[in-house]
Amino acid sequence: MKIRALAVLLAVSASVALATSMSVQVRNVKVRATPSQLGRVIATVEYGAKVQTGALQRGWYPVTTADGKKGWLHESALSTKPIAMRAGTSDAATGVSDDEVALAGKGFNEQVEAKLKAEGTLDYTWVDRMAAFVISEEQIKEFRAQGNLPGGAQ
């Protein structure tokens, strides 16, 4: 009886330990139905959003979004540090020290870029044009199929 209670306790604490909160560290990212960059899209989560993560499996975390959607995110999209959005935004962090958070919008940021643009130091025209080259997953799948590239599940 005692052993069973202990086992239950261990199992509960293990599952609690596994569910960790992580933050999205890229501008936005798609939550996938399967651990693959070409998997079906369940939801899109934005920079700074918190998700509950399970154990990492070959570069992918099983995640639950704030509104309860379940799927997978690649580890490169997530940070263990909560992301404090800038003061004035709804997610602005309060009462946390610099070591605990990655400060969004601080440092090498759009404020610095705006200053360089204003000074006429750098021309970002082509950088913006380049960033506008966005290829959809449908295009990638079609490109791969047309080029006879095999399977390719990550």
Partner: peptide, 19 residues
Amino acid sequence: QSLAVFSNRPETFGGYHFL
């Protein structure tokens, strides 16, 4: 971009773009 999805780092802040 069809190569980048197979990278060990498929997600960067602004994504992969080529010129």
